[in-house]
């Protein structure tokens, strides 16, 4: 059986934690009502107080704020529950089961660019199938962008099939 692609945890997993805490809070309110109604505690029931407040013509500012917060949190939960788990790594070529994180590709590309002659600083950014390398060139160097592209391409050969673009900027003196 083939294993699934490596993925991050879906957002629904984290919101499952929030949901469990919400359920626990609801259990606490109901339990407190039962304890107060049976006379196990001397305190007044929170649920009865909330029901009594329903007779008011308008909710208090606190209740209104809580209501708006509940509606927003509910919408957030609905959106998060439908989001798919994102891929965490991309598959490398070859017959081995090797997967690379985009951030790792960026680190390798940045290092490769910095080793090109005349480059002071390099950084990489992976967006979908494109790798964008930004290089800061030392002033007065004649180093070409093609050299940086070659070096980055050599370094990443076989790891990822990305379209490499280089943006070079000359540092001011």
């Amino acid at each position: 059986m083939k294993a699934r692609d490596p993925r991050r945890l879906p957002a629904a997993t984290w919101f499952g934690l929030v949901g469990a805490l919400l359920l626990a809070a609801l259990a606490l309110v109901l339990g407190q009502h039962a304890a107060a109604a049976r006379g196990w505690t001397g305190a007044d029931s929170w649920l009865s107080a909330a029901v009594a407040a329903l007779d008011d013509p308008a909710p208090s500012a606190l209740v209104l704020a809580c209501g708006i917060a509940a509606a927003l949190l509910g919408l957030w939960l609905l959106v998060a529950a439908c989001l798919p788990a994102r891929r965490s790594h991309a598959r490398a070529t070859g017959r081995s089961d090797l997967w690379i994180a985009p951030r790792a590709i960026e680190a390798l590309a940045a290092d490769a660019a910095e080793r090109a002659p005349g480059v002071l600083h390099g950084s990489g950014e992976v967006r979908r199938r494109r790798l964008r390398v930004e290089a800061l060139l030392s002033p007065g160097t004649e180093a070409g962008v093609a050299g940086i592209v070659d070096r980055v391409g050599d370094r990443l050969s076989g790891l990822a099939d990305l379209e490499v673009s280089v943006q070079a900027k000359e540092a001011s003196r």
Binding site: G16, P59, A71, G74, L78, A81, C82
Partner: peptide, 20 residues
């Protein structure tokens, strides 16, 4: 997780809507 989070989300939206 997914169905339970959807149900809780709907419940919260209804609750907030009732207050509004």
């Amino acid at each position: 997780d997914r169905p339970a989070v959807i149900m809780l989300g709907l419940l919260l939206v209804v609750l907030g809507g009732a207050v509004l």
